[in-house]
């Protein structure tokens, strides 16, 4: 009886030790609805609201996090219905800064940035829409102050 109890305890302890790791290890694909186990491992600096519009061919996502945090980037594939890995794991260094350039292949692009550390895991969805340059220019005229000096 005591041996059985010990065995059960040993298995339970082993499972508890492994669970946090296996629980947040992101593979080659992740669901669009994945959120991870934590919300404060990385902070996305760009785009600040996790969505943006641009006429550019690429977009640079930036983030900050603790040193040693493992980052992966996925792109949503509508035909498979899951997000597929496009940028393999990178570890945040001593600066705590991270950025990645992603190609904008369609008008509507969805990316998932995942982060894993000793604190848990986090997945952040980022939506980047591609719009025409003329539209951006029109928007800039309205929203961005291009300084008009007195001529």
């Amino acid at each position: 009886m005591f041996k059985k109890f010990l065995s059960i305890m040993f298995i339970a302890v082993a499972l508890m030790a492994v669970m946090p790791i296996s629980g947040y290890a992101f593979g080659n694909t992740v669901s669009l609805y994945e959120t991870g186990t934590s919300s404060n491992i990385i902070y996305i600096k760009r785009p600040e609201s996790h969505s943006a519009s641009t006429s550019d061919k690429t977009y640079t996502i930036s983030a900050v996090g603790e040193q040693g945090t493992k980052i992966k980037v996925y792109r949503y594939n509508p035909s498979s219905g899951v997000c597929e890995l496009i940028k393999n794991e990178t570890y945040i260094g001593a600066s705590g800064l991270y950025s990645v350039v992603v190609d904008l292949t369609s008008d509507s692009n969805i990316f998932m940035v995942t982060a894993e550390s000793g604190k848990g895991s986090q997945a952040v969805r980022i939506d980047i829409d591609k719009i025409k340059k003329s539209t951006i220019d029109r928007l800039k005229n309205v929203t961005v102050t291009i300084r008009n000096f007195i001529w």
Binding site: K45, R46, T60, S62, G96, V101
Partner: peptide, 25 residues
């Protein structure tokens, strides 16, 4: 043609500290 993308630090908001961020550019 996008092989080397140049961002300014302010584009990526690396000039502004946030939370536990220790490095600013």
């Amino acid at each position: 043609e996008g092989e080397n993308v140049i961002n300014y630090s302010f584009d990526l908001k690396f000039d502004q500290p946030f939370g536990s961020q220790k490095t600013t550019l």
